[in-house]
Design a protein around this nucleic acid. Sequence first.
DNA 1: CTGAAAGCGCTTACAG
DNA 2: CTGAAAGCGCTTACAG
Lengths: 334, 334
Amino acid sequence: MAVTVADVASRAGVSTASVSRALSGADGVSDAVRERVIAVAEALGYRPNTVARSLRTTRTQTIGLILPDVVNSFFGELAWAIEEAAHQYGYSVILCNANEEAERQDAYLELMLARRVDGLLLTPVLGESSALQAAARQGVPMVLVDRAVPKMTVPVVRADGRRAISRLVDHLVDLGHERIAVITGPRGTLTGRERLAAFRTAMRARSLDLPRELVRFGNFQADSGRRAATGLLDLDEPPTAVFAIDNLMALGALQEMRRRGLRIGSDIAVSGFDDPPWFQLLDPPLTTVSQPVGRMGALALEMLMEAIGGGRPESHLLDCELVVRASCGEPAEP
Amino acid sequence: MAVTVADVASRAGVSTASVSRALSGADGVSDAVRERVIAVAEALGYRPNTVARSLRTTRTQTIGLILPDVVNSFFGELAWAIEEAAHQYGYSVILCNANEEAERQDAYLELMLARRVDGLLLTPVLGESSALQAAARQGVPMVLVDRAVPKMTVPVVRADGRRAISRLVDHLVDLGHERIAVITGPRGTLTGRERLAAFRTAMRARSLDLPRELVRFGNFQADSGRRAATGLLDLDEPPTAVFAIDNLMALGALQEMRRRGLRIGSDIAVSGFDDPPWFQLLDPPLTTVSQPVGRMGALALEMLMEAIGGGRPESHLLDCELVVRASCGEPAEP
DNA sequence: CTGAAAGCGCTTACAG
DNA sequence: CTGAAAGCGCTTACAG
């Protein structure tokens, strides 16, 4: 039913080889033939079948993107930055939401491999993943984003929050806070551990204590932020400032504080991580550690292109930025 | 390099036909052969090449999703609802962001067709689209989401805001507002026209005037909301309430109001459209007309499955809900 | 420059 | 139940 190279060839009175060459822009065809073929293809409404092409060339011009939680605006933004960059390179992206479940991630990984994607971009979920190890061992071009996996040699692009977190602690301390709590990610995650460690280091640098009860472990989702805030606020001596290490846990914590009638910025200082557009719309606007999401996405894609081309891209660590707004007690902008 | 059916066949001592049958679960193979083939496939790490399968079966188990603006959280949420539903049906989704540009939409459409997606889900951008018309004429299974195209017979799933908008106007009027402004979408869009018309009808039902200067046309993006708010607030007699018909324009309007130091809910009433998670986090939480995004996505996918199966799914119009919070002057919940 | 032919890895009538 | 063979629509050595 659909028009094929054969149709174009017979109508143009040439071989399918010439049609293929003419249409692909390869040389080895006379201008006369090329023009005729192009005209005929146009007239017939020929649309190359990329499935057939892929079978022949073993390239699909498609990459797989597996993200752990797309409700999290950080990953939402990341997905679109990647999609945009991919199209720039002539690649399409198939995307999947692992929902922080290892089995789901692995199932999608298998699916991507069966679909013969040219490369894989993923933010691995917590836990062992045999599929991931296998794919890496097979040499599937792959780049990790935002999360590294302990003993894997796969290149990864991540953001380093240390500098910004240290500046955040300075900011809080300068505003008079000493009892500062942190809501971090699961113990098993590098992201959670690193940000917690950075926070702890920064506190120590200011000679401040970080007692056990002020460290709460969430799971990067809003509900856990709510629960963590509950625990903190119910303390005999609650913190005067709270730092949540992702935007969803910050959101949950804020909801709980609001529910209790606390005024952010005066009754309690709050700072988040990531910088979704609505952070600045909150009252007061939220002070936060912002990751360069767009650059991470674009860079991840470039690295993947390099890997697909047979190279061995290096890992990258980008710097985060402290965005000071009013939620820790600063005067709001006019 | 990768393991193929032929490899499995020779190792199992059967034909490729038997391998295919055994692995696909088709009948026409003895249990003995089936078991042997499965074991061998497993041992060899055989992963079927879906590209080859697709070429043969002319089914790709892939759908294309073209959205106009993924920064808009409505479409972000929609994308993920669709992705989720698609995977339930064993389909993968290739997604593209048309960025509200007709040429980009058409380029992606061509790409999807070349990739031989089994079906297409899209929210058409404003303006003529020959590619869209052509695809529809060719009978490509297709379902429109959120936006209909005037003379096209393609099935569409949309949300009807009329009832909720009428309730919103009642709500505002009951709170004493009479000078109510609306920030609507581009004149050319059905969405914009419909919501404006519904608003106008509701105002008339309450015997209220809607003077020209209180109707502002944006483009569904935050900046235009900001500009519209500027125009409204600069009026000699500014409105006491503003209704923005999408979440981004509401966001922009709120930013401008905040910039001017207006207190939402007391100095000015604001209501939005859609219901991203952070609407309830604003101070005060935003009253809004909420669309059933998840249901729209799931339904769109079901309709597309029907179309792919050769059916002619009917269009659907879902109802919106008015979510009353405090941004129009109601007391906040405890 | 041009074409005949092989082959990418599957699935599926067609025989037996 | 089983297999030999054709064919999906391309691209690309290989000859000429």
